[in-house]
Design a protein around this nucleic acid. Structure first.
Lengths: 209, 209
DNA sequence: TAAAATCTGTTGCATTTGCAACAAAACTAA
DNA sequence: TTAGTTTTGTTGCAAATGCAACAGATTTTA
């Protein structure tokens, strides 16, 4: 929605400003951050991709969010009191910019031009996040695995043009993202294929409806 | 998290400012807004309660959000392109303040003190919304009805002190909120009771674990 | 206050989903 | 290149969930 907002530029300004924003690199499979303390931390993924993951008491893994270039994440988006172990894992080499909201927001001397537009920029960032979350919520409220898959496919097929696409997750991860059993999901994929709704070749899917 | 932020005061300022924010009242069961156009509308519930509801093609009802006093909602939080019929229904007499984000944000003459802090206030509002959504997402990723119920109960029992509380929804609505079948949910409530995890008296629940 | 509408509680049965397990394929690291 | 690890694909079976239906309780409306 806020495509007019240039996040790359914003990130650049953030790094130049006050030295309060830091950049850090991570290797594949490294843990970027754990959500424990209440540090009001905000992070922006400059490049690469990552998963926000939760394990519950039974050892069930859930991929809470999939993060790609220019997505924001951080403790500030979560309630202070949480029972769960939440962390962000790099899926490839990534670079992130992170800062503490309060530091950037209040403690800076409001002299640079950047600070005047800071809140407005952050607002756009967070509004975009809200929209993503609502899409996620819509998927999760779907009652059956079939509907969840269809909902997921439709997000990959945003423009409605590319009826063939590659799933950017392993099927194991996809099940953890849809919050369903993997074998049941595979079964459903098979049914969708047999009933002619999709064609499937490895991680490549073609919609046929 | 941002308890320092006084939303009542903010709403007041909003109404005084530029005449661009409007107030409106609705009776119980009236539709407050439908999410169709992309008006970048933001609403604040001044008092009362409401549900953000979706019906899918099969007629399944989902309560996407439950809204109470001082909660924000509006089209701005949803993707432009949506397949679903989304609307907000008043559960009792309500009063809302609404405005179009772009109008407030850009078109005002930036002379009043209010406008200087507008973006920062909106940011806090939206950050709080993000947190609520993450709590909602956590609930929805729970794999079983039992876990969903427990997750829901724990949000009602935030302080951890009031182990007895009244469910602010009918059981019919609760099922639509958890996105599960009502009879299956009732069965699960019965099991929880029989196994001694809860006591139940109408809409009053006492946690026993 | 009576009638209508909605909600609660419950059940039997069908369907879906989860679990456990395993072999084959694909990928990764030494 | 090879051994180890992870992913994919599949199945049988158990458990959970959904569906349909209905009676009684409760609430709303006329």
């Amino acid at each position: 929605m806020y495509s007019d907002f240039n996040i790359a530029e914003f990130t650049q300004q953030l790094q130049n400003c006050c030295s309060r924003a830091q950049t850090k690199k991570f290797e594949k499979n490294e843990i970027i951050t754990t959500y424990i303390k209440n540090r009001n931390q905000i992070c922006i993924l400059k490049n690469g991709s990552a998963d926000l993951v939760r394990y519950d008491v039974n050892g069930n893994k859930t991929i809470v969010e999939t993060l790609k270039e220019n997505d924001v994440f951080g403790e500030i988006f979560f309630p202070v009191k949480t029972n769960n172990e939440l962390f962000v894992v790099a899926k490839e080499e990534v670079e992130i910019v992170y800062f503490i909201y309060d530091e950037i927001s209040y403690k800076c001397t409001r002299t640079c031009k950047f600070h005047e537009t800071l809140n407005s920029s952050l607002l756009k960032l967070v509004l975009n996040k809200t929209i993503s979350q609502n899409i996620r919520i819509e998927l999760l409220t779907k009652r059956s695995i079939r509907e969840k898959l269809q909902s997921y496919f439709s997000t990959l097929n945003v423009s409605g043009m590319n009826r063939t696409f590659k799933i950017p997750l392993s099927y194991t991860d996809l099940a953890d993202y849809l919050s369903v059993d993997r074998s049941a999901m595979m079964r459903e994929l098979k049914s969708l294929q047999e009933e002619g709704f999709i064609e499937r070749n490895g991680s490549k899917i073609t919609l046929r409806y």
